[in-house]
Structure formats: C-alpha cells, structure tokens
Simulated assay, not measured.
Amino acid sequence: MSLFNSLLRHLSDGKPHLLSDLASQLHIDEQSLSAMLAECQSDGLDLQWDECVRWHDPTEPLSRSKIRHAMTSRFNGEVSVAYKVGSTNQQLRDDFQHQKIWLAEMQSSGRGRRGRRWFSPPAANIYLSLGWRFNSTVTELSGLSLAVGMKLIEALQPYAKGKLAVKWPNDIYLDERKLAGILIESVPRGESQTEMIIGIGVNVSMQSADQLDQPWTYLGRNQDRLDRSLLVAAILDALFNFLADDTMLAGELIDTYIQHHWADYDVLEGRSVSVIDGEQELLGVAAGIDEHYNFLLRTPDGLRAFCSADVSLRLARETSE
C-alpha cells in the first residue's frame, strides 16, 4: 500500500487528526505530510487542515484485502491498488500480465473511446483494468465490449436504484443517464492469440462534474454510501466466471451470450438516434446490431450499418454524446 493510500485510510473516518500524530503513524515528517496533503487537495479531495487535518465527506478507500475476501470466484490474479496513475489501462500496456488487475483511486490521464478524456476524480468512482489472454484472434473477439457491458450490468444491477442498460458500443446507462464506460484495447500476439486490456470506469459517488457535457449519474444516488471494494469484487466475479468458461472457444462464448441476451440490455432499440460519421450527421431509428456487432440504423433510404470505430452515437434528445 502506498503512502497516499495509507493516508486516505487514516482520514476516511472523517475525524480531525493532529498533523504530528498522522505524520508519526505514516513514518514521515510533517513537511512531507503537508506536501502530500497539498497534492491530495489539488487532486480534488476536500481536505481542511491547520494543526489538524480532516477529510470532509470521505469515502471508504479501495481495499485489496476486502476485494479478495468478498470475491466468490476462483480468480487468483494479482490485484494492484494505486492512489494515482495516468490510466489503469496504460499500466497494463506497460506491463501486461494475464488476469492482472489494476485499480486506482484516481487517474490523471483517463481515456475513453476515440481518445476522449475520462473524468477521473479521486476516491469517488471505480477505475479498473483487467488483462486477459485469449486463444482467439481480434476479429473473433469483436463482441467483447458488448459482452463485458452486459456482464457489468449483471454485477451492478443489485446495487442500482433503477434499470441498467447498454448503449452501443461501450456505455452503461442508468435511467437514461451515463453511469459507466468500457474501453477495450487489444495487443495481438501471433495468429491465434490476443492480449486484451478490459478497462472499466463506474461513477459511484461522484456528485458533481462540470467537465462532462452529457447526461450522467452515479450508482450511489438516492441511497446510502456504497462500498467500492464490494462493487469491484462483484464486477471481477462476473467477468472471471464468464471469461474463464472453458466449455467453448472465447469467440463462440461471446457470440452465444450476445445472441441470447442483447435484446434485454439494448437501451437504443426502436428509438430515434443521431449518428455522427465524420462531418455527416444521420437521423434514424435504432434497429439493433448485425452479426458483426455493427450498429444498425433504419433511415428513409434503408438500413445502414456502422462500425464502433467510425462513429459517435446519441439519442436524438441528447445534446452531445
């Protein structure tokens, strides 16, 4: 556990702590502690300090031991919990390991699809990346993002006050507002093996975000504070139990799962949507997905198929994606 993670753990009771006592508990001097507190405050933590320091409205920090204890699957990969990283996906790109988990309290350079910034304030949400090695090609795994989204819903629905659904290709909506996003990056290894980095971001207790330009929400809205470590355990169990299923090849497993369940999770089916393809904006009605998991748009000129890498998509009533 890093010094910053230890600091959050000490302050998470919401009580005032003498700087001298806190420095002693962390085995550092008060000057170093003040520098850490200043950095945390700059990162966005609501800290108040003089001779004492207090974290106003704290959250329970992520706990690797609590995550492990709460998991029910046979997952035995390494779990790393950091205070701050550039992005959890990048941590795995720099040092990929099968079944390796990276978690962070915040990201300084979080990324979404098509290079968009993923807003990542400290100690409020879940920023998680999982490395998984498949004995399949990238093409055979083209439905992975949709399947992961559906499994994420299975994990989170017991904690949600409302209905969860997938917005093609990689967003999770709660009552018509964005709750979570998925970013999957591939590293091909030879002809029949692919290393995948499955990145997941979930809004848990983030109550303000002026930087976001679309309707959004958070899982803890209108309920008691949720324990993010327990949420992480539920997510990892759902993903591991699915990905570790060896009854069929990974591509076949993903295809079968989507074919049987996609209609139950699709938030767009039958609704008016806008597809932005470069400089062109097309209006139509969402008509599901095709066998290659492209988005289908019904227009006056007929049915059009769009690849997730090419377009932005929004409900017609939204002002931006």
Score class of each variant (00 low, 15 high):
Leu128Asn: 00
Arg317Gln: 10
Leu146Cys: 06
Met1His: 14
Asn294Lys: 07
Gly44Met: 11
Ser312Glu: 15
His17Asp: 06
Ile276Gly: 00
Lys66Ser: 14
Thr137Ile: 02
Leu226Arg: 10
Pro300Arg: 01
Gly199Leu: 00
Leu236Phe: 02
Gly278Ser: 06
Leu26Met: 04
Arg117Glu: 11
Ile153Asp: 06
Glu191Asp: 13
His10Thr: 01
Ala38Ser: 13
Ile184Thr: 04
Ile28Pro: 03
Ser34Asn: 12
Gln90Gly: 04
Gln25Gly: 01
Asp95Thr: 12
Leu37Met: 08
Asp266Phe: 02
Gln91Lys: 13
Leu212Val: 14
His10Tyr: 13
Glu281Lys: 11
Phe119Asp: 13
Cys52Val: 01
Gln223Glu: 12
Pro61Phe: 02
Phe4Ser: 15
Asp29Cys: 06
Leu19Arg: 07
Ser63Asn: 10
Thr88Asp: 03
Ala124Val: 08
Leu18His: 10
Ser6Ala: 09
Ile200Gly: 00
Thr247Asn: 11
Leu130Gln: 13
Arg117Cys: 07
Leu156His: 13
Ile198Leu: 10
Lys100Asp: 05
Tyr293Gly: 01
Phe134Thr: 09
Leu282Ile: 11
Ile289Ala: 01
Leu3Gln: 13
Gly190Val: 12
Ala238Asn: 06
Glu191Cys: 06
Gly199Thr: 05
Leu313His: 08
Ser20Glu: 01
Glu281Met: 07
Asp21Asn: 13
Arg298Gly: 02
Ser109Cys: 08
Ser186Cys: 10
Leu8Val: 07
Met248Lys: 15
Leu297Ser: 01
Asp210Thr: 14
Leu249Gln: 12
Ala165Met: 14
Ala165Asn: 04
Leu141Val: 03
Glu318Arg: 09
His260Arg: 12
Phe4Val: 02
Ile197Ser: 05
Glu39Met: 11
Gly86Thr: 14
Gly14Leu: 05
Ser120Gln: 00
Leu92Val: 02
